[in-house]
């Protein structure tokens, strides 16, 4: 008796459902906002933009210039963070690993803080400035990654590594505070705004860069399904089946660090999604097989971020609630469920 091809059965159903929900939320993002725009007008604006024509009405400006990039940003950011979280969970064999918990997002924030606060005064606002933020985020995430890798060789046990990650996060936070303390008021203001986490406000060019980073690295992750699955059996089994565990681990950390850094550079430190969405995907698909779980996690992450973004728009009564005020409300119950039911996941 043989069971299932890769995308038959429960995994496929889950992926279809998540796709449908994501599309519905994406549409929700286009139709909802502080300015009332009729359904027909939104629809018209979307069609015009898909046809490559730009209308110049107010509704076009809002739907195509603001809402659509925000929805796309949310989806791409959620996808990137969640794939990053899944890779970390498998690499460290720890269901509670995630880019924010292990201090990687905070490391990226520190990199951004250095660029914004220390250089912000004279770099100026331009392409160079945003490239600098991106590079700062990558450098910060990379430093934390290297530290984690180093400590993962020293400390035995997964709980200990989590604690080390949390401590590294605190260290980076305190460095950020110090930078804030000694910085100019203007720098602090822009950093604080950035630090609240926000899917909005990206121009189409920057959404394009985010898409490039998120999609490219997620595809790289998809190419690693074979060693990822082998790692589920533990280092020894993986090695006995011909997997170069050390190299695999390094590659996985580079991919997940890159994803976390890329998203953090554009959206600020967004907490919890990377930790929680892989579990949502696992629960919905019922499998840890990365061939199904990885695309499912990407979708769940995108959909989850869209849900958070939609709530931040709809519940704000005309204003947008900071995204980091919403992610814990959705995520913490899931984490508690995971901790209580650890055996199954």
């Amino acid at each position: 008796m043989m069971c299932k091809g890769d995308f038959c059965g429960r995994g496929a159903v889950a992926i279809w459902i998540m796709s449908a929900v994501s599309m519905a939320l994406f549409a929700g993002m286009l139709f909802c906002g502080s300015v009332e725009i009729g359904v027909g007008e939104v629809w018209g604006a979307v069609l015009r933009s898909l046809g490559g024509r730009s209308g110049d009405g107010m509704s076009d400006l809002i739907v195509v210039g603001v809402r659509m990039p925000m929805a796309l940003t949310a989806f791409l950011a959620g996808m990137g963070l969640s794939v990053s979280g899944l890779l970390l969970q498998t690499t460290f064999n720890n269901p509670l690993a995630g880019p924010s918990i292990l201090g990687i997002s905070t490391g990226a924030s520190l990199g951004v803080a250095v660029v914004m606060l220390a250089f912000g005064g004279w770099v100026g606002v331009g392409v160079g400035y945003y490239a600098g933020i991106l590079i700062g985020a990558f450098a910060g995430a990379a430093i934390v990654m290297v530290a984690l890798l180093f400590f993962s060789m020293l400390v035995k046990g997964n709980a200990m590594l989590l604690i080390v990650g949390i401590l590294i996060g605190y260290l980076a936070s305190s460095a950020i505070s110090l930078l804030n303390f000694f910085s100019t008021q203007q720098g602090v203001h822009s950093y604080v705004i950035w630090g609240m986490g926000n899917f909005g406000g990206l121009t189409w060019e920057r959404v394009g860069v985010l898409a490039l980073v998120s999609v490219m690295l997620s595809v790289c992750a998809m190419l690693m399904v074979k060693p990822l699955n082998a790692l589920l059996l533990g280092r020894q089994y993986a090695e006995s089946m011909g997997v170069d565990v050390r190299r695999t681990r390094n590659v996985l950390l580079v991919i997940s660090g890159g994803l976390a850094a890329g998203v953090t550079a554009f959206c600020g430190p967004v907490g919890f999604l990377g930790l929680v969405m892989p579990h949502v995907a696992r629960m919905l698909t019922g499998t840890s097989n990365h061939r199904v779980l990885l695309p499912a996690t990407a979708l769940a992450g995108g959909g989850g971020a869209l849900l958070c973004a939609w709530l931040s728009v709809v519940c704000g009564w005309g204003q947008i609630i900071p995204i980091n005020a919403i992610t814990p409300i959705i995520s913490v119950p899931v984490i508690v469920y995971v901790i209580v039911n650890r055996k199954k996941l």
Binding site: C3, K4, K226, L233, G234, M241, V243, N289, L345
Partner: peptide
């Protein structure tokens, strides 16, 4: 093993990795 949710067939199939 604490491998999470893998089917028996998934695990045996990994034997073919080489």
């Amino acid at each position: 093993l604490e491998v999470g949710a893998l089917s028996v067939e998934d695990v045996v199939g990994m034997g073919r990795y080489p």
